[in-house]
Design a protein around this nucleic acid. Structure first.
Length: 642
DNA sequence: CTAGGGTTAG
């Protein structure tokens, strides 16, 4: 076997003298033909032939070039065959397994093997080999640190190994630092690491810098990340992507987009990674106009399904179903994600019937729905009160699509029944489903109880949540809100006391609106916006107009027990009202007013928006974290059902 | 032989 491979390899690649060498081997003047063949196979493959020579090499007692061995190890990684890697390991270390016995068992080769195990996710093997190594250098340590930093759940171990490395007297290099930064879990550790990086003069390395930026961003220290970025003299595309992604992920979409503009000014061409981050920023912010501009960039990657899907999602989340739908129907190909995105997007925009129509289309011409598609379908049903359809899809998804209902589907069903006011059915469903109810389910029920003002059941659901998650803020807040809705101020106050005592803070209501290239943010009760005077005037103008059309403030949506004028004041300055006033002041002819909210819309603001849409003849679109409300001529797309 | 960013649907 070996002989035929050797002849083949040598004969194939170099006819003439080497073929002779194959036949007349002189140990003093010529490299052994086995070694020649082996080295070639390590570079060009096939992997299988190279592996087949290992036993003969061992039998002949030949010492193989470590470079060749490590190339072979890399081939295994490329082929994704850990078994072959183990074979090489066994050959290199010999039967004794004492680490120094066989040919090629240098530090270099051991490092390659550790790295191979790490890349296959075989951490135990990597560590066992590492522990048995007679010496270890920076590379050995760095390989292990990187492997641990990339693993989930045991990142702390990376830090421990890093410290052990220092104790061992091995100096970290830029590779080590950029790896260990990925395991950096507290600001203190980060400060310490950053300090040592500067001290040893590695802070000019681009890799180290981008890891530093990423580490600051992951700890939500945007300024820290920004500073590292600003100090850089030479930046590459990945550094730009790091900082843009950091801003996009921490919710600072405006910052992300500004950086994207600067990146283009600096002459960098965006790649798929840049654009996905920028689209994510647009999706989070509902900056439709900027999103359209990004769309123009994306056109250069027109075959990229991921970017297309992200665009459809962005248009849906920005409340522009027309754009989303136009794009969806023009897409060269559509996968499950495309269809699911479109279905959920329509449902979120209150177009449940259309969502179900798209689902029918998908069934006839698209890919097979998956469990996330079904979540979208059930979401469509629950947000339109289509109880019967919901039951039908829930009951038949196993039979029709082979999808076993999961937790999230049960949650949709509880939502469907709860929203429709069938609270008893919802409770019955929870007790009969195949899962142990979790806090998500109870929270859904609690939301429905609040909507239908069933305080007793709400208290039950809240207690169940607090059994599972004793410190859950949401449970306390929803419970107290329920009492407030019922005007049971004593009970509400009791819950608020718990919230205050535990330091639970309620997120203030925030709304934002895009005007030109700027995003204006409004916080409930906060009149610090530069146009506040104008906004207050506009609000009173709107109030007098809508009062004539029959609007009265619904003070039951105010949560504290206050005199009714004070309550009206609080209501008046809800963030969405400030945004609506700002929107009507600056409205452009024929364009809808688009507003984003961080919390669910309040009932009074919902009525207000409806009446304003009629009195001002404007379309108002408000997106809350769950769905959209399109207000037009006094009605909302949600049919007052949300 | 060791290192950096992004990845869409709920």
């Amino acid at each position: 076997m070996a002989a035929s491979i050797v002849c083949q390899v040598i004969g194939r690649s170099t006819p003439g003298p080497s073929r002779r060498a194959c036949l007349h081997y002189d140990p003093h003047h010529t490299t052994h033909p086995l070694l020649v063949a082996f080295s070639r196979l390590c570079v060009h493959g096939p992997l299988r032939d190279a592996l087949a020579l290992l036993p003969d090499l061992a039998a002949a007692g030949l010492r193989v070039d470590p470079v060749a061995i490590s190339r072979l190890i890399k081939l295994c990684v490329r082929h994704g065959t850990p078994g072959d890697g183990r074979l090489i390991h066994r050959y290199v270390y010999g039967r004794g397994g004492n680490g120094a016995a066989q040919s090629g068992s240098s530090l270099f080769v051991s490092n390659s093997l550790v790295s191979m195990y790490a890349k296959f996710g075989l951490l135990d093997d990597a560590l066992k080999l590492f522990d048995g190594m007679p010496q270890r250098n920076v590379v050995s340590w760095t390989t292990v640190v990187a492997a641990l930093a990339n693993a989930s759940g045991i990142k702390v171990e990376a830090l421990r190994f890093f410290v052990a490395m220092l104790r061992d007297g091995v100096a970290p290099n830029m590779y080590t630092f950029s790896s260990v930064l990925g395991a950096c879990s507290t600001p203190r550790v980060l400060t310490a690491l950053h300090g040592s990086i500067i001290k040893v003069g590695l802070d000019s390395d681009v890799f180290v810098r981008s890891s530093l930026i990423d580490a600051y961003m992951k700890l939500e220290d945007l300024d820290g990340g920004r500073r590292v970025f600003d100090e850089m003299v030479t930046r590459d595309l990945i550094v730009w992507n790091s900082i843009i992604a950091g801003f996009a992920q921490s919710g600072d979409g405006v910052g992300a987009i500004e950086l994207f503009m600067r990146m283009k000014e600096a002459g960098f061409l965006s790649n798929q990674g840049t654009l996905t981050s920028v689209l994510r920023a647009c999706t989070g912010m509902v900056t439709l106009e900027v999103g359209r501009q990004v769309h123009a960039h994306v056109l250069k990657y027109d075959k990229d399904l991921i970017l297309y899907n992200a665009l459809v999602d962005m248009y849906c989340k920005c409340g522009s179903v027309q754009d989303a739908d136009a794009l969806f129907s023009r897409m060269p190909q559509r996968d499950v994600i495309s269809w699911s995105t479109m279905i959920s997007g329509l449902a979120q925009n209150g177009r449940s019937i259309e969502a179900l129509k798209v689902f029918d289309m998908m069934r006839s011409e698209g890919p097979r729905p998956n469990h996330i598609t079904m979540t979208g379908v059930l979401f469509a049903c629950s947000h339109s009160g289509l109880v019967e359809d919901g039951w039908y899809y829930f009951r038949s998804m196993q039979k029709l699509f082979g999808i076993q209902p999961q937790r999230e589907h049960c949650n949709c069903m509880v939502d469907l029944l709860g929203r429709a006011g069938k609270l008893d059915d919802a409770v019955k469903f929870i007790h009969e489903m195949n899962f142990q109810p979790d806090s998500v389910i109870w929270r859904t029920l609690l939301g429905a109880c609040r909507m239908h003002k069933n305080a007793n059941l709400a208290a039950y659901a809240a207690k169940e949540i607090l059994k599972l998650e004793p410190d859950d803020q949401g449970a306390w807040i929803l419970l107290s809100n329920t009492y407030a809705d019922l005007r049971q101020w004593a009970d509400a106050e009791k819950s608020w006391k718990v919230i205050r005592d535990r330091g639970v803070k309620k997120d203030p209501g925030r709304s934002w609106i895009e005007l030109g290239k700027q995003v204006h943010i409004f916080i409930a009760g906060d009149l610090s916006h530069p146009c506040s005077e104008g906004i207050i005037q506009e609000l009173s103008r709107l109030f007098s107009r809508v009062t004539n059309l029959g609007y009265t403030p619904q003070t039951e949506f105010v949560l504290q027990d206050l005199a009714s004028e004070q309550k009206e004041d609080l209501l008046k300055y809800h963030s969405e009202k400030l945004a609506i006033a700002f929107g009507t002041m600056n409205a452009m002819e024929g364009k809808p007013i688009r507003i984003m909210k961080n919390l669910r819309i309040c009932g009074d603001c919902h009525t207000f928006a409806k009446v304003v849409s009629k009195s001002e003849g404007k379309v108002i679109i408000i997106r809350d974290p769950v769905r959209f409300h399109h207000f037009e001529d006094g009605v909302c797309s949600c049919d007052d059902y949300w």
